[in-house]
Design a protein around this nucleic acid. Structure first.
Lengths: 350, 350
DNA sequence: CTGAAAGCGCTTACAG
DNA sequence: CTGAAAGCGCTTACAG
């Protein structure tokens, strides 16, 4: 990440790169003298190219964090290797903290997260901030928000907006994937999901949005609820659906609310003799499963886990630097990208 | 805002405030030496109290912006004094730009916004960034996103996530207002809205969320669509509703998707002899109408317009400082607060 | 807008 | 962790 050669980029390097005087660079960056637009732009572009602007932005923030307290509902902890998403997200977070020399201490308490315990734990390790992952329990969030810790909810939903939140743009990303399928001629699409955290329901919203945007009747898209988000839950749910309808009931694609479900869907559909993507296309969501190793490889929505980790730390630092006033809480959603692979071919057209 | 006396807060002031050595402060802020947790915290709190952390964060960013190009759909321009929300938002934006010495140039083009025109206009004034207000037209956003201007969509929705967006947390705020009514015993609530931009539909989502969260049947809450967002549209829609049902049909509250509608609702309901809030409570959304001047004064959801303006500039600067790589786009939503006044009394309990 | 120079604020190395 | 001191990077004032 840090190339040795560009260790210390300074205003001097920028002036050379832009071919202007050192003082000019300073004036551009501070607005302390009237500078022509052409020169201004030349300087700013050089500063951006060399990463000087980014460095300067970072420098402001890098101050305040030394220890973060991390609270994750036990079911989502990495040692439970079923949930690869959690694992990858937490790894990204650890890596980013390490890179910046921030210590991160994981909460280890009752099976059910509990605000008093979390606050006590954070205090015991002298944390400046708390990252709460996945949870969206208002009973938990309210007392945490009332404390004077900087708190960020990661990958969750806080409808009360009592704490800052960082999450993928679930609704828009699901809409994107569904739109992609619709644009390739699919009309009857199954959405395979489960009744879990509310963030997963935002993916269902997006599924519907795509139909509405095309003025297609919503009931062309059918939603199937699995009993959970493991591959076996997907298999069971699909098996039941197929048995009930004596087939796929005219559906040509399955959009799964998680890669785990998509993996189960792939195996169940293939076990039942369906060709993928010939008979039915499969699209996942998450982008952390080894989707390029499945057969066929999995088309999926990639959640930018690294960026989520970075944004979480930034939100925490921002909150820490705010004195007294009542800045409104913010929710930051990051855009996701569709990874096109073989389980949903791009040349399907009915 | 800037008290003369605290013009230049430096590390020296922080060291005095915290009662530690100057070098210690530096080490804490840079992590360049092992410092005990107690001292660290003492220093950081002093730094925050004096606004030093905030100053430092700002300093990193203040660099890159000198001219912003502002594109607003003509119907929302301030000279159309019907829309007080636009006016207040754009004023907040101008004020913040002025405070920071940023020049802001308003686009003035065809009645329908058009990407090529906007880009040409931005280039003509040597802008570094473009703020697009209110619009959510993908045909417009796509080509803008493809340009290499830093772009922020303010108060809009971009489901394609092609540009960074700053907006109020419409869905959660509407949920909050509805929850507040439900918690005061209201069960049958009218949601008065109009078919406009999609952000307004998010307020409808939030209206429904509040019912779902309480496990109340959704059809207790009924939605009325006015023909637009002006007070007269609200009057007409309510008049039709009351005529059709021979009254309020058991509803005890009207939650309006905009203050403008709420003002119309107040006047129509009173004209028809209903007591507010005795017979029916009225809640608005926006918080910019002179809601404390209506009779009765208007309970409403206040959108943090100043913070939206600040966040927009920050997002623009952040995007400007990013070199090459593909950082995902971000959507920032800010939390809103309920302003309790007389049009929905807090002691209504059935 | 340049370039040399003074100055300022923060960083850093070190003895205590 | 302190305190005095050297050093560094950026800012600022100014003549050209």
């Amino acid at each position: 990440m840090d190339r040795r050669t560009e260790r210390k980029i300074g205003i001097k390097d920028v002036s050379k790169e832009a071919g202007v005087a050192l003082s000019t660079v300073s004036h551009v960056l501070n607005g302390t003298a009237p500078i022509s637009a052409e020169v201004r732009i030349k300087v700013l572009e050089a500063a951006r190219r060399l990463g000087y602007l980014a460095k300067r932005q970072q420098k402001g923030a890098i101050a305040s964090l030394s220890t973060i307290y991390l609270a994750v509902p036990p079911g989502n902890l990495p040692h439970n290797d079923i949930n690869l998403v959690s694992w990858t997200l937490l790894t990204a977070l650890s890596r980013e903290c390490e890179r910046r020399g921030i210590k991160i201490v994981a909460h280890n308490g009752s099976p059910e997260l509990n605000a008093a315990e979390i606050l006590a734990g954070a205090k015991a390790v002298n944390a400046e901030g708390i990252i709460l992952v996945y949870d969206d329990n208002p009973k938990l969030l309210r007392p945490l928000a009332a404390s004077n810790y900087a708190i960020v909810l990661l990958n969750g939903e806080d409808p009360t907006m009592s704490v800052d939140t960082v999450a993928p743009a679930n609704r828009y990303a699901a809409r994107l994937a569904t739109q992609w399928l619709l644009s390739r001629g699919h009309r009857r699409i199954l959405h395979l999901t489960w009744r879990g955290r509310s963030t997963i329901m935002r993916r269902l919203d997006g599924f519907h949005d795509a139909y509405m945007e095309q003025n297609l009747p919503l009931d062309l898209g059918r939603t199937i609820y699995a009993d959970g988000y493991e591959p076996d839950h997907a298999r069971k749910a699909l098996r039941a659906f197929i048995a009930r309808h004596g087939g796929l009931d005219g559906h040509t694609a399955v959009f799964c609310a998680a890669d785990n479900l998509a993996i189960g869907a792939l195996s169940e559909l293939q076990a039942q003799g369906f060709q993928i993507p010939g008979d039915i296309a499969v699209v996942g969501f998450d982008g952390v499963a080894p989707g390029d190793l499945t057969v066929p490889s999995l088309t999926t929505v990639r959640v930018p886990l690294d960026s989520l980790a970075v944004a979480t730390l930034k939100a925490l630092e921002q909150r820490l630097s705010i004195s007294g006033q009542d800045h409104p809480t913010q929710r930051i959603e990051l855009g996701c990208r569709l990874i096109e692979r073989d389980s949903a071919a791009s040349n399907f057209l009915r």
